Amino acid sequence: MIDPRAQRTGAKRLPWSDASSDAAATGPRFTPADSFLVFAYAVVAREAAALAAKRRAGAEMPTPHEIHQLRVTARRLRVALRLFRRLLPSRDVAHFRAELRWFASSLGDARDLDVYTESFKQYAQGLPPDRRRELSDYELYLRRERAEARQRAAAAFESARAAALFDELQRFAAAGPSAGALRRWRSLSIREAVRRSMRGSVGRVRRLGRELDERSRATELHALRIRTKRLRYELEFFAEVYPELAQTAEACKALQDLLGAHQDAYTANARFRRYAASLRKQGGDGTLPPALAELRRSQLAQARAVRKSFKERWPAFAATIDAARRAIS
């Protein structure tokens, strides 16, 4: 898929070729006056190297923690490609973003069930023995779901498609920008590009958030969570040049985690509905055992509490991201 580009920069060592270096150890490599194009390739190279490092030799099935890290890194790389899409070859960006979406989605069910199973186990362990016995059939259902999800994740992880994606990403990152791209974008500094990006990204999050209240749909809160996560990753990229943005990225993570708790509650509720449907297929009436019905009620109550907390926390968060935007302007 990667199109060879006729003109490359020379053999001189350039920032994007040092993707394995630890920026935290060596200090900032860029200043606001530097080329945004060179910065873009450096970020993409670093994120691609991080993804490759998390794919263990021998294509062994990753542990639950490694699955989480792979998904996060794939998402960060997708955000980087989206953020820098105007500067990068459009066909490559479209290809990589589609393949990274496939890869992260292939691991998604396994990761979600890993997290949910641990949470459910803690709930079950807190019940009296007689109540815990009510959950045995559901626990068996979860084990089957989790095993099937991990099989799907293993198939994707070990596939030739995933291997090709990792190889293509590393070749793309190592190649760097063409001489033509360097000429075209030579006047765009990091300072100017970050200003533009912050205006757009902060504005999108603000528009979504100010419309939400305690009656908003779960899909609307989830959309804000995705936008906030995107903004967080952008801020983390830019914090290499503007360290003060790291604190704003932490504020984004806090809101992302809050909205994630809301999404987890609704995802769990959907899982209960699927389980009830499976009971009906087996000839039952689809009624959840009392211990599960109680858990379902507590999770919906948690979702309501998150909505209330969001309404209280939103003004301070909006002020924080607005201040970060003004600081760069």
Rank of each mutant, 00 (worst) to 15 (best):
L221F: 15
E312R: 13
Y242G: 01
A154I: 07
G108S: 10
M198T: 11
T9L: 14
R304M: 12
V93H: 00
D92A: 14
A327E: 13
E134H: 13
L288V: 07
S17F: 10
R313A: 14
P128A: 11
A291D: 09
E312P: 06
V194Q: 06
R150N: 15
Q151I: 02
V93Y: 02
R215M: 07
Y242F: 14
E139C: 06
P289F: 02
D130P: 05
F96P: 02
A163D: 10
D257C: 03
S201R: 10
E158C: 10
L245I: 11
F317I: 10
P289W: 01
A316W: 04
S90C: 00
S189T: 15
E312K: 14
A33Y: 07
E47H: 09
Q256Y: 15
L77Q: 07
M198P: 06
A24D: 12
V205A: 02
A319S: 08
Q299W: 09
I328T: 01
R144K: 13
I190G: 05
G126C: 10
R146Y: 15
P129S: 07
D18E: 15
R91P: 05
R143C: 13
K54F: 05
A175I: 14
E168F: 08
E211P: 01
V202C: 06
L88M: 09
R46K: 05
W314D: 03
R82L: 09
Y141C: 05
R274T: 10
M198A: 14
D22N: 15
R204A: 08
Y138L: 06
Y41H: 13
V79Y: 02
E168S: 11
R217S: 13
E134V: 03
W16M: 11
A52R: 05
W102D: 03
G200I: 00
K281I: 02
A50L: 11
I2Q: 10
L231N: 01
G286Q: 06
R183H: 09
L83Q: 09
E168Y: 03
F238P: 06
L14G: 12
R191K: 11
A173H: 06
A179E: 15
R199G: 05
L51F: 04
A104N: 02
Y266N: 08
E47V: 02
N269I: 01
R55N: 12
R97I: 04
R186H: 12
S309I: 06
P315D: 09
T26K: 09
Q263H: 12
A124P: 03
R207Q: 13
L77T: 01
L87D: 07
P128W: 02
A327M: 05
R76M: 09
E236W: 05
V79W: 03
R230L: 13
D264A: 10
T287C: 01
A53H: 05
A162P: 00
S329W: 07
A174V: 13
Q302K: 11
L165I: 06
G286P: 13
P243S: 08
S216T: 01
D34L: 04
L188E: 15
R71C: 01
D18H: 14
Q7T: 14
D3I: 09
A162V: 03
S197G: 08
I190H: 01
A174D: 11
Y233T: 15
R13M: 11
F103K: 00
D92S: 12
R191N: 08
